[in-house]
Amino acid sequence: MPGNGKLRLAVWKFASCDGCQLSLLNCEQELLALLEHVEIAYFLEASRATSRGPYDLSLVEGSITTPHDAERIHAIRRDSKLLVTIGACATAGGIQALRNFRDVKAFTSIVYPNPDYIRSLRRSTPIRDHVEVDFELRGCPIDKGQLLEVVGALLAGRRPGIPTYSVCHECKRAANLCVMVAHGTPCLGPVTNAGCGAICPAFTRGCYGCFGPAEKTNTASLTNWLRDNGENRKTLVRSFRSFNADAEAFRKESEALEQAGKRHG
């Protein structure tokens, strides 16, 4: 830590929508208290004043989608004592990882008048595929409470209390009624990591899987049940292919569903 005893924080952006870094600015109530302990050394979303590394903590948002970014992340890693990735893009490749299931060149040729200028990698990949990551915070976007918990735990020298169990766990604690059992609404909660506070089921909607796969998942069993209850295979493929499409458990399930679809027509 620098002379002022504060933790030097840097926030970095890769391929992403900025929503996760905005979660830090959204900590309106807590921001002043946070700044008692933290010096914002590099955070373009908050200030154009930047200072050089090394940084005690780097929060990295976004996925790696270009050759330039694949280089840049190494420099950030070298300059950071701790590197924490934030959000579905940084931890699973994000919504842009939908390209991983198709030929990205086919997209660029349709979208851009001069696709030759586009230098894009074939796949969108999470940060941990490129450098060592000390901690991952899931979500699209991340939960600001979880972000403060990680920073607070780091300052206090304790392990962050970030759950790895399913959204169902949160629903039951909050006494949300199960939308699958009571309403027949398809829900990814049983295979999705907790952390959002089960927001969607609390408003009687199925979970969209924003926080990616839980520590233990059985996506095949969930889809079998939903298929038996009349859910369409294509809809299920789409439900696994959203913000965490390329997270391993979700990718495998959507691919298995697609394969089964081809076999059965």
């Binding site: 399913s166 169902c168 039951k172 909660g189 998942t217 059985n218 095949a220 069993s221």
Partner: peptide, 8 residues
């Protein structure tokens, strides 16, 4: 094979 380990 069927259990989701979801803890419900």
């Amino acid at each position: 094979e069927r259990c989701l380990a979801c803890s419900n």
